[in-house]
């Protein structure tokens, strides 16, 4: 199974803002370049983008969790 990894360390968010819906949910199909989450570091919110197409099988980290570089954050089914 393919995964999307965090390229930067920081705090992981699934939504663009606390009151808004998550970027993607389990079961959604995603396309390359699509924003699937944010990672906050150095006072900036950086978009995590899909590099390949697929279907989101599930999230491997929780909203608000700290992530490290290279950590798997999303599982994809092809």
């Amino acid at each position: 199974m393919a995964t999307i990894k965090a390229a930067i360390p920081g705090v992981f968010y699934r939504r663009p803002a606390p009151t808004e819906d998550p970027y993607v949910q389990a079961g959604d199909t995603i396309v390359p370049g699509q924003t699937i989450a944010l990672i906050e570091v150095m006072k900036n919110f950086n978009e995590v983008k899909a590099e390949q197409a697929g279907t989101v099988a599930g999230f491997l980290v929780e909203d608000g969790d700290e992530v490290s570089i290279g950590e798997d954050i999303v599982e994809l089914k092809n």
Partner: peptide, 10 residues
């Protein structure tokens, strides 16, 4: 104690 680097590290 060990101290952990937070997200606010620039």
């Amino acid at each position: 104690v060990p101290w952990k680097v937070t997200k606010d590290a620039d």
